[in-house]
């Protein structure tokens, strides 16, 4: 799990953490902006893993989008990692594109008939590991996904595609469809 370096007081569903690669903490670790929202239990679990508490997670993307834009412009962050509804991913993508960012990893998470289907795209090594964790998870999948940041942080392009599914009860408040992503600057 990534260590925390602090919160942005002005933002809600957002925090910034240094990337902890599997090799351990690097002294000049890339800073990762975490973005999620309060829409359901899954995103809240993801948020909690990064120390974002449900009481401060907002539902309006404007609460963090303009800070994201400023911090990308000022090179204060290196990667953006999130679990959210698809509309939020679109807003974040459009904000990051002019700063030369592209997806290094993308995931879709759909509840279909008491199963949870994960469609993942990223570089081969990272996707194989994350797919395995999501298929055989013992902890909630959103927690696994949060903890996969160390692996996905090195994914540079969605070249490998993988689909895994697991039996799952559909959480009561779920929109049935979430997306996860990692945005990184083009080398």
């Amino acid at each position: 799990m990534s260590t925390r370096r602090g919160f942005l007081a002005s933002t809600l569903a957002v925090t910034t953490v240094p990337l902890v690669a599997r090799a351990g903490v690097l002294s000049d670790a890339p800073m990762v902006r975490i973005i999620t929202e309060s829409t359901c239990a899954d995103t809240l679990r993801f948020a909690a893993r990064f120390g974002i508490h449900s009481s401060v997670v907002g539902g309006d993307p404007a609460e963090y989008l303009f800070d994201l834009e400023r911090d990308l412009r000022d090179h204060k962050i290196d990667l953006v990692y999130g679990l959210s509804r698809a509309s939020t991913q679109f807003l974040v993508e459009q904000t990051a594109l002019p700063h030369g960012y592209q997806f290094g990893y993308q995931g879709q998470h759909r509840y279909i008939k008491q199963r949870l289907l994960h469609s993942l795209s990223g570089t081969r090594e990272s996707i194989d590991i994350v797919a395995g964790r999501l298929e055989w998870h013992t902890r909630p999948w959103a927690v696994e996904l949060a903890d996969a940041l160390g692996v996905l942080g090195s994914s540079v392009a969605p070249t490998q595609h993988s689909e895994v599914s697991a039996a799952s009860v559909i959480p009561k408040d779920s929109s049935r469809h979430l997306v996860s992503w990692l945005l990184r600057p083009v080398a």
Binding site: P61, A62, R85, A86, S87, T88, L91, Q108, S175, H177
Partner: peptide
């Protein structure tokens, strides 16, 4: 007060425009 909440509409069918 400007906000971006209405974009949530686009999730009606999953990833939408």
């Amino acid at each position: 007060i400007p906000n971006m909440t209405e974009f949530g509409l686009l999730n009606w069918l999953g990833p939408g425009s």
